[in-house]
Design a protein around this nucleic acid. Structure first.
Lengths: 206, 206, 206, 206
DNA sequence: CGCTAATCGAGACGGTACGTCTTGTCTTGGC
DNA sequence: GCCAAGACAAGACGTACCGTCTCGATTAGCG
């Protein structure tokens, strides 16, 4: 029976899942509608039909709510493809990452939070531990799989190479705010493959 | 003469330079001491020994004050070197940029403002027009000079190549918050030179 | 049997007397320690080691708890003496009343509740019906006994005369907050006796 | 010209009289409409069309606002009459006092505040110093004038006698909540006059 | 040399959001 | 059926800043 679905108003065995979802949704909506400054604890509570105290009971502030909302939304939006061939996976993933960051609500939440990380170092530490490390693992997956497949030399510094691939994307998204076309991400991927795959060829005599 | 230096209380012929300097200094100090959240118009005015209205008369908000403070400080902190040789200029500039961004008060102000640009798109547009375009011109100088000298082929896309060089630095500063060592910037510079200078060798048949 | 005395956590046979006593005691203590504002349903429950719901199950609010606490304590604190002579009973009772009101915990509870009766007329009606009428009967006892003994004329308006005797005491306790010495109560009693006992002398021609 | 009447929004030369009046009126209205519990700082500010901070700037809490409202309203509502004859002044004043206390908005404010004085001794001290002493001086005026006129013996204890006259009124208003008719106040006045004026007659041989 | 106009410090104003507190209701599982 | 535990919606608390305003003092050039 739909026993666990019943609306309830608190009990000793934990929080209300309905309230949790309403809060996360309200925060997401407010950010999309009114921007980061328009997201307030008061507004979240009102929009979610929830008491302010209920928000404060489970989250320390609006950024904490947004982090939860982001984590919830992100894993599904950004799954690295796996075609078994780096030449296919890498450009596809870079294009997907660029799109999510620059053109989705999820990307807006990410930008708001990475911004807050600049303003508040303590939050930044928590945010990076909670979310970013996971994201960076995702970013590294294409190269790691290629190493496992033998497409790339085992000695390659996957972390550093990944930084150099995604860095320019984040730079455009966060700093220059320029659109990122498919040609840009393709060129990043192509030059990386070119450099790495032929490194031990004609580049040797340098 | 020292005439205009005198502390004064208003006159019909323009603003008080003393008040302006006091405000910029107060904003800088507050950011360094208490972080972005600790910078308030009220606090700036109090610390500067100035009326709130005086701040509002000349700046639209705390971010506008910080932009002025940043512009004042930045040009001098970050002048691209010119040794006449890209292999010297490029690593030096990347290292200098990394240092300013990650380890100086000027870098802290920059991070606070680029963060605010995420939160407030209107501010972002103004900030990029007012400050960032100038900064990107500085970033492109080493490559442009090399093109002018004939060190690099004339057809190279200087803007795109610069993005790929500085992107990873901003990525580390803004996103991952990892320290950037001299070896990292040197490796970026080296690989760029390697790729570009030997491009028309074995890579030709692609 | 001792069965119902055992500390227990719920049973189907009526309320826990232990919980009831703990609640009344907690309310009394909190009032004495922190004043009326320091008495909260939450605080009472916590101090009594009882769930908030248990308090709400049996009392409608903190004032209801205090009323119960007061009723429990009061009858014994304030028993009119009976020496068989009004000239002895009246001054003794007035002094006793003044002392209880102005210098005991019971008096503090009374003051808190009569205050609440001003703030909340509905509570006031209940409080007066529940408690004050009983108290006024006590206050009238000395005069009533004197009438019964023939010390006072049968036609005297006992209620009105009592008001004029105790009114000034309540006035001092509630309004002026001045100490009430034995001489003050003695003088009240003396003048009353003087007036009533000799009324039908020279005052007659009025 | 009506220079000082101009509406203004704060300046360095003191507070807004318009805001002050609006606050006092709002507090009065709320008390009359919704009772003491219905008076909140938030509600006062909203009803007065004033910022909460403005209320807090000038008053420490809702009781402080009510004290000001009371002081403002009271002096005019309760002016002891002066017919030049105690036998006229005293009954008139007692009836006026009874009416104001038991049947006017001013009386409701008084009751709310004297109640708060029971709950909060610190407030009580301030309230008595600020307001009650003045009120007691008013209460004593009829007797004092009679002493000055020679109607009453110079040695009479005006303060104590006043307590015994008004005490029963406050007792009825605060404690028993019974209506006070003109006959009751007349009887109080009459018996006082009777007792005091004929004291040195037939009462002597007792 | 006095008038005029813009700026100055000061600070009260109407607002909004903060994070905390208490109220009274509801739900659960143990006894 | 009562109990302890505690989450819940509601809403007031007192504080901090926001951006606007009014004021009287100060100061420079114009007439």
């Amino acid at each position: 029976m739909a026993d666990t679905e019943r609306r309830h108003h608190g009990n000793r065995h934990g929080r209300s899942e309905a309230a949790r979802q309403a809060v996360l949704q309200a925060a997401d909506d407010l950010l999309a509608e009114k921007g980061f400054a328009g997201v307030t604890m008061e507004g979240i509570a009102a929009r979610a039909g929830v008491a302010k105290q209920t928000v404060y009971r489970w989250w320390s502030g609006k950024t904490a709510v947004l982090v939860d909302a982001l984590v919830e939304d992100l894993a599904e939006d950004l799954t690295p493809p796996d075609h078994g061939l780096l030449a296919l996976d890498l450009p596809a993933y870079l294009a997907q990452l660029a799109h999510v960051l620059s053109a989705t609500d999820t990307g807006a939440v990410f930008k708001a939070l990475i911004a807050q990380a600049q303003h508040d170092p303590a939050f930044g530490a928590g945010f990076r531990a909670r979310y970013l490390d996971e994201q960076r693992r995702r970013d590294r997956l294409p190269l790691e799989r290629a190493v496992a497949r033998g497409e790339l030399p085992a000695g390659i510094d996957v972390a550093a190479e990944t930084d150099r691939l995604v860095g320019p994307l984040y730079y455009r998204v966060l700093v220059t705010d320029e659109p990122i076309g498919r040609d840009y991400t393709d060129r990043l991927a192509h030059d990386f493959l070119d450099r790495v795959l032929h490194e031990r060829g004609p580049a040797a005599p340098r």
